[in-house]
């Protein structure tokens, strides 16, 4: 079973991602802020981490810096999900070392394929 950790503070966004991905045999873990997201990433060894850039305690950009320093997570793709304007989001993604970017609102038709590509 492939496990995806979603670090997302917005309940509606979290539920949407769960509903779209769970039928594709993914197990979804959820953290609603950066602190708990970092702890869960370290303890649960997910196959993929989705990080909202705008979190209430730590920015997603800062979280990816911490996660990338974890040897156990070195091969785990970390993907930004954000409502930032696309050009800024792209710049943040590249500068901070995310492995990919998905802009909000997610496209529920293509979202499972996007996730599968990051896991391939």
């Amino acid at each position: 079973m492939t496990t995806i950790l979603q670090i997302e503070d917005n309940r509606a966004n979290r539920i949407l991602v769960e509903r779209v991905l769970e039928p594709h045999n993914y197990t979804l873990l959820h953290a609603n802020d950066g602190e708990s997201g970092l702890a869960m990433a370290r303890s649960s060894s997910p196959n993929l981490i989705l990080v909202d850039m705008g979190l209430p305690d730590i920015d997603g950009q800062t979280i990816v810096l911490f996660l990338k320093q974890e040897p156990a997570l070195a091969d785990v793709p970390i993907v930004a999900i954000t409502a930032w304007p696309p050009d800024v989001a792209q710049q943040m993604t590249e500068r901070y070392g995310f492995d990919g970017l998905i802009t909000k609102p997610i496209d529920i038709k293509s979202f499972p394929d996007q996730i599968a590509q990051f896991l391939a």
Binding site: D9, N10, D33, D52, M53, G54, L55, P56, D57, T82, A83, W84, P85
Partner: peptide, 18 residues
């Protein structure tokens, strides 16, 4: 504050401590 920013141009939610 967070409710007002939920669909804001630059999402910047805050925790109580922040």
């Amino acid at each position: 504050y967070n409710m007002g920013r939920v669909d804001y141009l630059v999402p910047m939610p805050m925790s109580v401590a922040r």
